[in-house]
């Protein structure tokens, strides 16, 4: 099958690639662009490890085709920190020991960031339901929820 030329923006960098029309955005990010921060936990939209945003919308990149990124703005975990400065969520995840193996962390950070952009003051229940699409097998979520709530509080204070 002949490949399709795609022009897109990834973490603010304009990017071009050729992809098979069947190839997912996740595969393009990981296998072609070497952006391996987004992980494949399931490939079926059930685990959230591959979470990215597309024009600020939270999506599972395993359910998006590479060709769909045409003309869009994609953001991945690699683009969350500003240079050397970590995003408050990133700092709080380390501080609260909110990761054990860390394979779910990129997806959860992307999802949590998109929550806080919509709702800067979520309740515990709101955080739990927003993150219900991001599986973590290690932590039992306790410390993840605390880290997100704490980051939200800090961001509200700073705002």
């Amino acid at each position: 099958m002949s490949k399709v030329h795609v022009t897109t923006s990834i973490n603010g960098d304009s990017t071009e690639y050729l992809c098979d029309p069947r190839e997912t955005l996740l595969d393009v990010l990981r296998d072609q662009l070497n952006l391996t921060g987004a992980k494949e936990g399931c490939g079926t939209g059930d685990c959230g490890a591959c979470s990215v945003t597309m024009d600020d919308r939270l999506v599972c990149s395993c359910l998006v085709l590479g060709v769909e990124a045409e003309g869009k703005e994609i953001k991945t975990v690699e683009g969350i920190a500003e240079g050397e400065t970590l995003h408050p969520l990133q700092r709080k995840f380390i501080e609260h020991a909110a990761l054990q193996c860390g394979v779910c962390t990129p997806g959860i950070l992307i999802a949590a960031k998109s929550l806080l952009e919509k709702n800067p003051d979520p309740t515990e229940t709101e955080v739990r339901y927003w993150l219900a699409g991001n599986l973590c097998r290690c932590t039992g979520y306790d410390k993840i929820i605390r880290a997100v709530m704490d980051a939200a509080a800090e961001m509200r204070e700073a705002a």
Binding site: R30, T36, K39, E40, T76, I80, Q90, I94, G102
Partner: peptide, 14 residues
């Protein structure tokens, strides 16, 4: 920690 919150940590398929 830093590697794991920035996506730099390399896992099996990375």
């Amino acid at each position: 920690g830093l590697d794991k919150v920035t996506g730099k940590a390399r896992f099996g398929a990375d």
